[in-house]
Amino acid sequence: MNYIKSIGAYTIMLKSVFKKPQKRKIFWEAVFREIDDLGVKSIGIVAFISFFIGGVVAIQTALNLEDPIIPKDLIGFATKRSMILEFSSTFVMVILAGKVGSYITSSIGTMRVTEQIDALEVMGINSLNYLVLPKILATVFFYPFLVLLAMFLGIFGGWVAGIATDLFKPGDYIAGIQLDFEPYLVAYSLIKSVVFAFLIATIPSYFGYYVKGGSLEVGRASTKAVVWTIVVIIFSNYFLTQMLLS
């Protein structure tokens, strides 16, 4: 019963979020601030993880291909497909759900318990629109770039791993990357990233905005927000894959 209530409250929240901003200039300032906070400041972690995961995928594929009949360009092909199909969109977004989701819930939750949201409402400002819409725009527009970066660095990481470990030839790896390239798979990954970005911005905002109590409750809300965001991302990943690839 509580889940249905929460879904209802989340939907009502979105209705308030999608209103015309009261002051365009302030709104765009907020959007650019959020792009910096939620997007640009995540580039480092995304780059680091993508590069090394790409390397690990390539090494593991190479180690599991002992049969000489199987062509070695399969290593590059498998790394490319893993990076494009799942890692860059789903895995990176799960990481961002943890990093950015907890930040969003705790910052909005702290504003709630310290009455800063009440202060906005007293001034006549639609606090949901002011606080959440810039986050949605920032993530929805910026995260696809992070996904592209993750794809590139993951595949690059695999190539570097080949040179560093000598398990496969860089030429075979590059041939594998070029093999059977389907642009639609990149589009599929980007579509998923837009949906996941929306979830990362809105679910933690919901948990932060409706928090009651003090710092302990804000902490609990952050944990809940991260867990639920990941759960919903994993579910939507299943349905999106079914819809877009089958």
Binding site: I26, E115, D118, V122
Partner: peptide, 29 residues
């Protein structure tokens, strides 16, 4: 709402803004 001013118990100042930006906020809006 623009004719109402409120001083909250914990001041409710926006943490991410300076004193000047906090006071200027209603004017900007």
């Amino acid at each position: 709402k623009q004719d109402l001013g409120m001083v909250f118990q914990g001041s409710a100042l926006f943490d991410s803004l300076t004193v000047e930006e906090n006071v200027m906020f209603p004017l900007k809006m």
